[in-house]
């Protein structure tokens, strides 16, 4: 390896580190709800405090989103790879579950907690 090779490696590691830091700082608050988008369009928002199982059936395929104990995870998916099911549980703002074959994204938003603020006033 030559000197400039290490420059590349260093630059990439630095970028990865900075990105991680930024992502840590920008997210991390416990979220209030999950927002589900299919094909970039919001199809629903579901509060994390409510235990629920929400099925999504589109031309792309079937997914079953389950919310339990304030966390959301993908229980079922009929895509070939099942990566969305392996992504585990999400609960903090900005965390996502992604099912690429079905163009489905579940993202934790602070949504519901702002309602609480309004009520508190």
């Amino acid at each position: 390896m030559k000197k400039k090779d290490f420059l590349i490696a260093g630059a990439v590691l630095l970028l990865a580190g900075v990105l991680t830091l930024v992502l840590r700082l920008s997210g991390g608050d416990p979220g209030g709800a999950v927002q589900v988008k299919i094909d970039g369009k919001v199809v629903g928002t579901y509060a994390l405090v409510e235990e629920q199982a929400v099925p999504f059936d589109t031309d792309y395929g079937h997914n079953l989103l389950v919310i339990r104990d304030g966390k959301a995870h993908m229980e079922e998916a009929d895509c070939p790879d099942h990566y969305c099911m392996e992504q585990g549980e999400i609960e903090k703002t900005g965390e996502t579950l992604v099912c690429l074959p079905h163009k489905l994204v579940v993202e934790v938003v602070s949504g519901e907690s702002s309602d609480v603020d309004v009520v508190a006033k």
């Binding site: 990865a16 990105l19 992502l23 970039g40 996502t96 992604v98 993202e107």
Partner: peptide, 14 residues
Amino acid sequence: VQTIQLAGYLPVLL
């Protein structure tokens, strides 16, 4: 998927 949040995977992928 029109979701910029996928950038969250960037550090690992880098």
